[in-house]
Design a protein around this nucleic acid. Structure first.
Length: 590
DNA sequence: CTAGGGTTAG
C-alpha cells in the first residue's frame, strides 16, 4: 500500500517535471508556432493520468496570456474545469485578468464572485488585477473607489504595484494632480514610490503642458535618491521637445549619459521627430548619426519620423531616398511610412501621384487606415475635386474605416473650400446630437468656411449657436469671428469681441492682432489700426509679412509726424531678431 | 511608465 503510493507519487513527480521542462522551453520560444505548441502540450497534459495539478496548467496558460491570447486562455481554463480540475485563487485571478483585457468587465466580476463563493478571500494579486483591469477598461473611477475601500476597510496592505496602477489610472483620465497627491502620500508612508511611479506622473505632467512642474518633480525624485530611468528621461525629453525646448532636451540627453543611463532608440527617435516637426530635418539627420555612433540602430519608427519630416517640407525625393535607405537595412515600410508620403503628394497637389500611391499601398497588401483616407480626402478637396472626395468618404465607411473627428474637420473644411458651405451645413445638421455637434474646432471650420463663401450671416448664426450651446470659443474661433465682423464693416463689434475674448480668459495672439490690423487698414480705418498695432507690439507680438508690407505701402501717404511713422521706425529696428534660434542645437548632440 | 502618420484662423 505504502509502496504503491510512493511509486505513484514518484511517477507523478517525474511526469510533472517533464511537463515543467517543456513549459520552460516554450517560455523561451518565440514565433508563430508558440501558441500551437502550447495547445498541443495542453492536450497532452489533459490526457495524462493522473492529471497534472492546476498549478502546472496555470503555468502553461500564463504563457498564453503573456502573448495576449486571452480568449484562448479562458477556453483552456474552461476545459480543465470540465475535466474536474478546480481553479485555485491564482487561476481565477488569471481568468479575471483575461476577461478585463477582453473588455468583459462583468464576466471578470463574476469570476470574483466565484472566488468569494469558494471561500478563499482574494489576495493582493487579485486586487491588483482588479484595479489594473478596471483602469485598462477605462473604469478608473471604480478602480479608485475599490482602492479607497481596500484602504478604508484594511482589506489588504497596498504594495507598489497597486499604487502604480492607481497612479496610472489617475494620470490616464487627466487627474494628474490627484496622482501627485497619491505620490506624496506614498512618500510619507511606508510603501515608498519608485522610479516607475515618478515617471508616470512626470510623463503626465509633460502631457498636461506642465513641463516645468515635471522638471521640478524630477529634481525632487533625484534628491530623494531615486535614480531616473530611460523612461523618465524619455518623458522629459519628449515634454521639452513638444514645447520647442530642443536645446534643453539635448542637454537632458547629455545629462542621462553622464549619469550612466543609456538612451535607447526611442530616445533618439523623440529627438528626430521633434527636429523634423520644427522644420530642421538637418538636425534630425544629425540625431540619427549620433545614435548610429552609439551603436543603436534606427528602426522603422525612426525612419518614418525622418520621412515625415521631408514630406512636410515637400522634399518627396529625399523622403523616397530615406525609404530606400531603410529597405537596405531590411526594414519594411509600413502604412505610416506611406501615409507620410501620401501627405507629401497631397500637400503639393500632386494628386495623380497621390492616387497612384493610394492604389500601390493596397497592391502591397497594406490596408489604408483612417489616416490614409483622411489624407487622400484632403488631397482631393485641395485639388478641387469635392465629388471624388465625397465618394471616397463613403467608400472608407463601406470598407469599415470609421471617420474620426479629424476626418470630419477635413471633410467640412474641404467642402467649404470648394464653395459648398450650404451643403456642409446641411450635412452638419443631419448628423444628430453626437460629439461632432459639440466640437469647437468644427464650428470654427464652418464659421470660417461660410465667411470664405461670402455667407457672413450663416457665420454669425453659427457663432451665436455655439455660445447658446455653452461651447467655449478658442483663439481661432474668436479670430475668425473678428474677421467676419470686420469684413461686414462692424468695427465696433470687432473691437468689442477682442475685449470680450480676453474677459473670457482667451488671450488674443499674433494672428488675431495681425488679422484685425489688416482688416482695419484695408478699410482705411488708420486711427484704429494704429492703436491696435501699438497694443500688439506692446504685448510682444510682431506684424507678419502681410501686415508689414501693407505698412510699407502706407509710408508715402502718411504725414511725417503721424504716430504711424514712429511705429514703423520701431518696427524696422526690431527686425531680424528671430533668426538665432536653431544654432545651438546641432552642437549639443555630438 | 515606453518614441511614429491625417485637421481648423493670417
Amino acid at each position: 500500500m505504502n509502496g504503491t503510493r510512493n511509486r505513484l507519487r514518484h511517477y507523478s513527480t517525474a511526469s510533472t517535471s517533464h511537463f515543467n521542462q517543456r513549459i520552460l522551453n516554450l517560455k523561451h520560444a518565440s514565433g508563430a508556432a508558440k501558441v500551437d505548441d502550447a495547445l498541443q502540450l495542453f492536450d497532452e497534459m489533459l490526457q495524462r493520468q493522473p492529471p497534472p495539478s492546476i498549478i502546472d496548467f496555470s503555468k502553461l496558460i500564463t504563457l498564453i496570456v503573456k502573448i495576449k491570447h486571452y480568449s484562448t486562455a479562458l477556453s483552456l481554463f474552461k476545459k480543465i474545469n470540465l475535466m474536474g480540475i478546480r481553479s485555485d485563487l491564482y487561476a481565477l485571478t488569471v481568468s479575471i485578468n483575461c476577461h478585463f483585457r477582453l473588455n468583459q468587465v462583468n464576466y471578470g466580476l463574476a469570476v470574483l464572485a466565484t472566488i468569494f463563493k469558494q471561500g478563499h478571500p482574494p489576495d493582493l494579486a487579485t486586487y491588483n488585477t482588479l484595479i489594473h483591469g478596471l483602469v485598462l477598461a477605462d473604469r478608473v473611477f471604480e478602480a479608485v473607489e475599490l482602492f479607497k475601500k481596500l484602504l478604508r476597510e484594511k482589506l489588504c496592505e497596498p504594495d507598489q504595484i497597486m499604487f502604480g496602477a492607481v497612479i496610472n489610472g489617475l494620470c490616464k483620465v487627466g487627474h494628474t494632480s490627484k496622482a501627485l497627491e497619491l505620490l506624496r502620500f506614498m512618500e510619507a508612508g511606508s510603501c515608498k514610490p519608485c522610479v516607475r511611479h515618478y515617471s508616470t506622473v512626470i510623463d503626465s505632467l509633460c502631457k498636461d503642458k506642465m513641463v516645468d512642474d515635471a522638471l521640478q518633480l524630477f529634481a525632487k525624485m533625484t534628491e530623494k535618491g531615486v535614480l531616473a530611468s530611460v523612461i523618465t528621461y524619455n518623458a522629459l525629453i519628449h515634454g521639452l521637445c513638444n514645447f520647442g525646448r530642443e536645446a534643453e532636451a539635448a542637454k537632458m540627453l547629455r545629462d542621462m549619459e553622464e549619469k550612466g543611463v543609456s538612451p535607447g532608440v526611442d530616445t533618439f527617435t523623440i529627438l528626430v521627430n521633434s527636429f523634423c516637426k520644427q522644420g530642421s530635418v538637418k538636425d534630425a539627420e544629425l540625431a540619427v548619426q549620433a545614435m548610429v555612433r552609439r551603436g543603436l540602430h534606427p528602426d522603422v519608427i525612426t525612419y518614418n519620423a525622418l520621412i515625415d519630416g521631408y514630406c512636410l517640407r515637400g522634399e518627396i525625393d529625399k523622403a523616397k531616398k530615406v525609404i530606400d535607405r531603410m529597405m537596405e537595412k531590411e526594414l519594411v515600410p509600413n502604412i505610416i511610412t506611406y501615409n507620410s508620403l501620401l501627405n507629401g503628394y497631397c500637400k503639393k497637389k500632386r494628386i495623380d501621384e497621390a492616387r497612384h500611391l493610394f492604389q500601390e499601398i493596397q497592391d502591397k497588401g497594406l490596408i489604408p487606415d483612417v489616416f490614409t483616407y483622411s489624407t487622400m480626402l484632403q488631397g482631393l478637396f485641395h485639388s478641387g475635386n469635392p465629388a471624388a472626395a465625397r465618394e471616397l468618404f463613403n467608400k472608407m465607411q463601406a470598407k469599415g474605416q470609421a471617420p474620426d473627428i479629424r476626418t470630419y474637420h477635413i471633410l467640412f473644411h474641404g467642402m467649404c473650400e470648394n464653395g459648398e458651405c450650404c451643403d456642409a451645413l446641411v450635412l452638419f445638421r443631419s448628423m444628430g446630437n453626437n460629439r461632432l455637434m459639440k466640437d469647437i474646432g468644427l464650428y470654427t471650420i464652418l464659421i470660417d468656411g461660410c465667411r470664405k463663401c461670402g455667407k457672413h450671416n450663416f457665420a454669425m448664426d453659427l457663432f451665436d449657436e455655439l455660445i447658446l450651446k455653452g461651447l467655449k470659443p478658442n483663439v481661432r474661433t474668436y479670430t475668425v469671428m473678428i474677421t467676419v465682423l470686420c469684413q461686414e464693416g462692424l468695427f465696433g463689434k470687432a473691437k468689442d469681441l477682442l475685449r470680450k475674448m480676453e474677459e473670457n480668459g482667451c488671450l488674443p495672439n499674433s494672428v488675431t492682432y495681425n488679422v484685425i490690423v489688416q482688416e482695419f487698414m484695408k478699410q482705411k480705418a488708420f486711427q484704429e489700426a494704429e492703436i491696435l498695432l501699438e497694443e500688439m507690439i506692446n504685448r510682444g507680438f510682431s506684424p507678419d509679412s502681410t501686415t508689414f508690407s501693407m505698412l510699407l505701402h502706407l509710408i508715402p501717404s502718411i504725414g511725417q509726424d503721424s504716430p504711424m511713422q514712429t511705429i514703423i521706425q520701431k518696427l524696422t529696428s526690431i527686425k531680424g531678431s528671430d533668426d538665432r534660434m536653431l544654432d545651438s542645437i546641432s552642437g549639443v548632440i555630438t
